[in-house]
């Protein structure tokens, strides 16, 4: 690490740290210690909270079965929101990605503008979108689906664009040479080259959507999250346990499906 320094000025193992670096380090450490207080980290509260956690955990077993069917429907709705939102989001992402890809955008300004919009969609957190959609289209799964769409576009348009930028330019040049249009190049050269990576990205988007659709219900955007919030508020921890188990099975199932498809995809690519 300090090879060049030692070879020039001899061995100086305990070189005095530069004052600027030392000040930065001290400042960083101070900020972190202050943040511990700001984040409310408190060992004593953790210790005094332990018995509560124990009580809640013991009330969770055995998980309740009284609202099993309605909960199952809620989980299904959650998955449907995630699925529909992801599919629509992926469909919207494809043309956006073409405009956002450096090698395909009709104009650098369009490329920059679309990139900017997509970044905005991605950086605003999904719960903020959910609150916005609940306020505009009302409570229920549609608000959640819209949230998933926006989330998926923010994620997929960016990565699709990168997948497309990685495509070999040679075949596209050949198509341009024989008089093809930009759309011909996109469909005939870029899509086939980027397709495996795009499917992979879409599967990740689905996993992400299932996980985030679970919590959207907490702000009224439909799905199992609402059931979870109600159970917790009513101190029905046994019901909450059932819901958590259902969510676990759903997320695990989607992840399994996703990695199975990915394996088949790689096997054939």
């Amino acid at each position: 690490m300090t090879d060049t320094a030692t070879s020039r000025s001899g061995p100086k193992r305990f070189a005095a740290p530069e004052p600027l670096k030392a000040a930065l380090f001290a400042g960083g450490l101070g900020f972190f210690l202050w943040s511990l207080a700001g984040a409310g980290v408190s060992i004593s509260e953790l210790i005094s909270g332990l018995p509560n956690m124990g009580v809640i955990a013991s009330e969770m077993v055995p998980p309740a079965t009284d609202r099993f069917l309605p909960m199952l429907w809620s989980v299904l709705t959650t998955f449907q929101m995630a699925l529909v939102g992801t599919v629509i989001g992926v469909v919207i992402s494809v043309p956006l990605a073409v405009l956002a890809a450096r090698n395909l955008a009709p104009h650098p300004l369009i490329h920059a503008a679309v990139r900017g919009i997509v970044s905005f969609l991605r950086t605003v957190p999904d719960l903020a979108w959910a609150l916005f959609f609940v306020a505009s289209v009302g409570l229920g799964p549609f608000a959640g689906t819209l949230t998933i769409i926006v989330d998926t576009v923010g994620f997929c348009a960016r990565f699709f664009a990168e997948n497309m930028e990685e495509a070999d330019p040679g075949p596209g040049e050949a198509i341009a040479t024989l008089g093809g249009r930009r759309i011909d190049i996109v469909v005939c050269c870029i899509f086939p080259a980027a397709l495996p990576a795009m499917i992979n990205t879409s599967l990740f988007a689905l996993e992400k959507a299932v996980r985030s659709s679970v919590v959207l219900g907490l702000v009224g955007a439909g799905g199992i999250g609402a059931e979870l919030a109600v159970s917790m508020e009513m101190f029905r921890y046994d019901q909450a346990a059932t819901i958590v188990l259902m969510i676990f099975v759903l997320v695990l199932g989607v992840e399994r499906f996703s990695s199975w498809s990915r394996g088949r995809l790689i096997g054939r690519a």
Partner: peptide, 14 residues
């Protein structure tokens, strides 16, 4: 006008 490149430039997956 046809143009043949040094590298064939076919679309590999098609």
């Amino acid at each position: 006008v046809g143009f043949v490149f040094q590298k064939h430039n076919l679309v590999p997956r098609l």
